[in-house]
Design a protein around this nucleic acid. Structure first.
Lengths: 213, 213
DNA sequence: TAGATTGTTAATCGATTAACAATC
DNA sequence: TAGATTGTTAATCGATTAACAATC
């Protein structure tokens, strides 16, 4: 009953997928074998109707009268998200934030392997973070070509981020995780995920005004 | 022509405000005094119509036949976002990510002042990050009561985040910036901004499948 | 005044929710 | 079989875009 996956899925749906994945993983750990859209709705906070609509974008994962098999659904959503694969990633900018990202343990579990770190600071070039060497910026090009790098994490300051991006894109990088507070210009076939930290704080302060809640 | 600001603004609009603020700041730096919705549209990438709709949620900031005064608009959006104020913040969890947040220079410029850091690790309690002391968890309650703390940054692991939250909420914390990979349960008057890092990576890997773009 | 551009209403588009036939 | 729950269509809701009168 698998639908062709060529039809465009809306961004709203895609952004819910990691949350489904997280909750299903938890259910799996708890040894729960099956779940209905209604039960899932109660723990995840989306409507049962939305849950069924979401899953049906990718084909029929459920069974009438029964619900969904937790493990199957978990595995399927993982596949849709592409985390059944393995990705080599690089980090550019090993400042405080870059170091935190490099030290983050969990990414490897989902197939995101940090293969190289790059910085301009001579004092840290040559050192290792989590057993990954910090290399000089000039090496990026050669490294990307030789190591099948899929994703770049940009942790440089806002003023250098676009320049770095313009280096990465021609090398074939198709996914950028951008922590710099700037909107990167990239061609259509490149995906950028922004973590604009200050924007989050502004959203929080917006709601600190009691009237706005 | 100022509208009452009591009508609910949609989340989609609120999330665009920091971006407007950022672009207006840039224009201001460039010495640009006025801008039309059409010109702003070209640099920010929203439609001119959306820009005018967005601004009109908060009252008439523009002038027919002229456009918008860059500085006025910048200041007004800053006020709407509440970043004309000063907020004391605390950080809970001084691991790699927590340290990166504590070391992040820019937050103070927008009125977000890190007043205290808390951790359970005896080895770092008593040390300082950016001149802010790391204190034991037991002190949170007293510290929040004495220091008019508005916002808490949660950088502990997922398994402790809810427990910390349950401590913070009764102390009057009304805004939580959550870096743990878990959805926090809070009362309606508390705002949570999540930075679910792994979710970002999953979104990126989703789009690495060429067909999905 | 004439031209430009806002503020605002109306139209469209897309996403969510409701309903229910299909079916396990 | 009867009950449960999906898959899917239809209805609703909300957000974006288009259009244009108001007005600087």
């Amino acid at each position: 009953m698998q639908k062709a996956t060529t039809n465009k899925i809306s961004m709203a749906v895609i952004r819910r997928l990691p949350k489904y994945h997280r909750y299903l993983r938890e259910l799996l750990y708890q040894g729960i074998k099956r779940i209905s859209s209604k039960e899932l709705s109660e723990i995840i906070g989306f409507t049962a109707s939305q849950i069924r609509q979401d899953f049906n974008n990718f084909g029929g994962f459920g069974q009438q009268g029964y619900g969904y098999n937790v493990e199957d659904l978990y595995v399927e959503i993982g596949k849709i998200l592409g985390i059944d694969g393995h990705y080599n990633t690089i980090l550019i900018g090993a400042g405080h934030l870059g170091q935190a990202i490099a030290n983050y343990a969990g990414f490897d579990d989902y197939g995101f392997h940090l293969a190289g770190i790059f910085d301009i600071d001579k004092n840290i070039i040559g050192s290792k973070i989590q057993n990954v060497e910090v290399m000089p910026m000039e090496n990026i090009s050669k490294f990307v070509k030789n190591n099948n790098v899929s994703i770049a994490y940009i942790c440089v300051n806002a003023s250098s981020a676009q320049k770095i991006t313009d280096t990465l894109v021609p090398l074939g990088i198709r996914a950028i995780w951008n922590f710099a507070s700037v909107d990167l210009k990239v061609p259509d076939n490149v995906t950028v995920e922004n973590v604009h930290l200050i924007d989050h704080l502004m959203t929080l302060s917006y709601f600190l005004d009691e009237q706005k809640k």
